[in-house]
Design a protein around this nucleic acid. Sequence first.
DNA 1: CTAGGGTTAG
Length: 646
Amino acid sequence: MNRLSRHFTTNPSSRALLLPRILPNHSSGLFPNKILTLNPNQSLIQSFTRLSLHGPLSDAMAALETIDSRCLHAADPIDYLHLIKLCLSAGAADAGRRIHRHLTSAGYLPVLFLSNSLLGMYVRFGLIDDARQLFGNLPHRNVVSWTTMISAFIDIELGREALEFFVWMQRDGIRPNMFTFSSILRACDTLRDVWAMHCCAIKHGLDSDDFVRSSLIDAYFRCGDWESGHLVFNEIITGDLVVWNSVIGGFAQTGHGHEALKLFRQMKRAGFLAKQATLTSALRACTGMVFLEMGQQVHVHLLKYKPDLILNNALLDMYCKCGSLEQAEVNFERMHEKDVISWSTMISGLAQNGRSLEALRIFDLMKAEGAKPNYITMVGILFACSHAGLVEDGWYYFRSMNQLFDIEPGSEHYGCMVDLLGRAGKLAEAVKFIHEMEFKPDAIIWRTLLGACRVHKNVSLAAFAAQEILKLEPGDEGTCILLSNIYADAKQWSDVEQMRKMMRDRGIRKEPGRSWMDVGKETHVFIAGDFSHAQMEGIGRELERLISRISNMGYVPDTEFVLHDLGREQKEESIRYHGEKMAVAFGMMNSTSGKPIRIMKNLRICGDCHAFAKLVSRTEGKVIVIRDPVRFHHFQDGACSCGDYW
DNA sequence: CTAGGGTTAG
């Protein structure tokens, strides 16, 4: 191919010059309009131009047929571009394929912006095989062609293939651009990949592009390296909202709520207007930190925006996880648009707050409104059943998942079933269920069984379950502690000592129990046996007062949960200063009437603190809400929402 | 003609 013809085949505007203009060579220009209207081919081309730009698609396609039947090349390549857009907006894949055939026979595939548009069209229709084939047949490929394919692969989760294409394009001598990097970074799911890609972007001088940076930040956070993500953000503080959102969202999703909220404030101070995605991340940060007050402030912000489904779902989840079901329900009812996630959030939220029956009612409502439950919805439903002891219902939902909703039960569902049977004391059935599962039980399944063994005091089965966990996760500290607790409860002191020796040898240390609560703008943390709080004297006196009040109602310290082989008095002393008891006392000292005391915990609540909180809620006429890592306990009038079943 | 950020469970 000589230079001139290459110029003509790759440069669209000059390609147009090659088109057969059916005008007489000797047109004098005297009657140009007349000549044009008189020539039937020319007027066909003109109407094709008009139709491909304005539609309707069917007429434009008919014109295309006529052009074909007269063996003509059409007018300007631009017309085809418009026609492809028309196809896209009409969702007409067949017409798209028809255009593809036409362009091939007309010899237009070398015109890159046309072949790339075709590629893009196939991708957006989800026709990856057509796109692949076209890509393979292209006489020329540029960055856009390659990037279109890479992006398409990532959309359908073929990350490996995307990365292979990224390598091949460079072997072909094509340099990636910022579009390529912002796409390919989504395919990087190991830190090594991200590093390599980051280096590559630097080499091409593209690492300070905002699109590339937001993708880099996202990729680093996804691979767990939030420091690097933050570093990329800090290199240049731009006015690009998405870069802010990437870093805020990254922190929010990885449990660094403080950082996320700090950046959120920083962003507002810098004068940027938060968008829905920003607020969603801010809410998620509040959810993770159980910051009800802060979440309510974000809620106020949110009223200025037009309703957004994802944002409302995040709001719903925030209220559920902060233990404020009333506000969650109000907002749930207010939402005029609901999707599976809204329903699932509400169902799990009710279940985690001990309102299983209402969760099941919402599920009925969901089905009545024609929403289709998904995998996660069913986890919530089974969770509701297990935490309310609804064994029969649980079995029913578990068995019907497949036929009714076309959902294949996964390990999470099996886990819920083990929990359901185990909590209900049907330990033998639970073991049988585990052995009959289609797949190999994982550590979560055994841990669930171990928990049930603790509640129902089955020491030998507990030892077996713990053994299975330690096979899968050697040296898991939670398992060691739970097992030694179970031994201690059964007064098998030599086994306790053996466990503790093993833990010492392996360097396993118990995570200290912490409880925390917000008073005003401050967060107060209480650790069992730690008396360093500034108001400790007052807390001790208040604790004394509360214990004497509830002792009159029959409270006897329950030392079952004390690990050590101590005397009774020492045991009583050690549980008296559990963090949640100190927090309740502190909460009483600083309480506003009518407002519940809200306490968060990093470990699950012990039986004695549970009994304590129930009685205090009665004698003091106070609602106490304690959130442990799995669920909420709402104490009111001497009862708990969990029904003592947790 | 090709690109980036947000929601549900365990």
